[in-house]
Design a protein around this nucleic acid. Structure first.
Length: 245
DNA sequence: CAGATCACCTGCTTGC
DNA sequence: TGCAAGCAGGTGATCT
């Protein structure tokens, strides 16, 4: 915060959603006021607007790294360089002078949402639970890995209908979501193939996954085989013995 | 409103 | 060795 972007280059029209030349132009010379996060969205508040960043599947923010084949944006500061690298380009690096309301429409952050709010929101839907957790309008910040892990810890089947969840199980689920996210952060994230933090270090939480990516392996709780199904178009991992429908 | 399907991208792994 | 198919942290459009 307080730093000025001395020069910005953008080389992907995908991650900027269109006008990349103007994105770089708008960012060059801008000073950062604050940085905030809401779920998976990063809002860098500038003196002249907002820099919106979403890492998508393979996005990385790297401080003082060398640019490579997948560098899509470069922000140069007096004391270093911030790169945005993204192989698949599902991420976003966008400049807005006025933030579109749609970007602020996500639900409360999963790490801080109160149980009361969580439960009230749960009551408004009638969907499979995993699909609900992946819905960023419901709560924001839970993706495919942590949805599977939280449901495992709470012993809830990913396709359990949200409207049939007892308050007691909702309490458990809410608690496990917070726990698994905190634990994952403590272990600096899940590096399955290429995730690294801004210093280029891999996380270690993938070693502690109970079910995600472990189809066919024994369930750490009951020893039964972890199963993989498709739910909401996403690979879904769970223990059929511990997580009953 | 919910669910399925496809689309957007690129690379890696698996199986024949 | 080659090649096609399937898979991957996310989201958004479209159609039923």
């Amino acid at each position: 915060m307080g730093k000025t972007i001395r020069h910005a280059h953008v080389s992907s029209k995908r991650v900027t959603r269109g006008d990349w030349a103007r994105t770089a132009e708008s960012l060059t010379g801008a000073t950062i006021r604050t940085v905030r996060r809401q779920g998976k969205q990063i809002f860098v508040e500038l003196d002249r607007g907002t820099l919106y960043i979403h890492l998508g599947m393979t996005g990385k923010l790297l401080w003082n790294a060398s640019p490579g084949k997948y560098t899509r944006a470069v922000l140069e500061f007096d004391d270093g360089t911030l790169l945005y690298d993204d192989v698949r380009q599902f991420g976003r690096v966008e400049f807005y002078s006025q933030l579109p309301p749609a970007l602020s429409g996500t639900g409360p952050d999963a790490l801080t949402v109160s149980f009361e709010d969580f439960y009230a929101r749960l009551k408004k839907h009638r969907v499979g639970l995993k699909a609900l957790l992946l819905n960023q309008q419901f709560i924001s910040g839970v993706g495919n890995i942590y949805a599977d892990e939280a449901l495992f810890l709470a012993r809830i089947h990913p396709e359990a209908p949200s409207h049939r969840i007892s308050k007691r199980r909702a309490v458990r689920l809410h608690g496990e979501i917070v726990e698994v996210l905190k634990l994952a952060i403590q272990h600096r994230g899940s590096s399955i193939s290429d995730y690294v933090d801004s210093a280029g270090n891999r996380g270690a939480f993938q070693q502690l996954h109970n079910v995600y990516g472990r189809a066919g392996e024994p369930c750490p709780r009951c020893g039964g085989a972890v199963k993989r199904i498709v739910v909401a178009q996403r690979g879904t991992h769970y223990c059929p013995r511990c997580q009953r429908a």
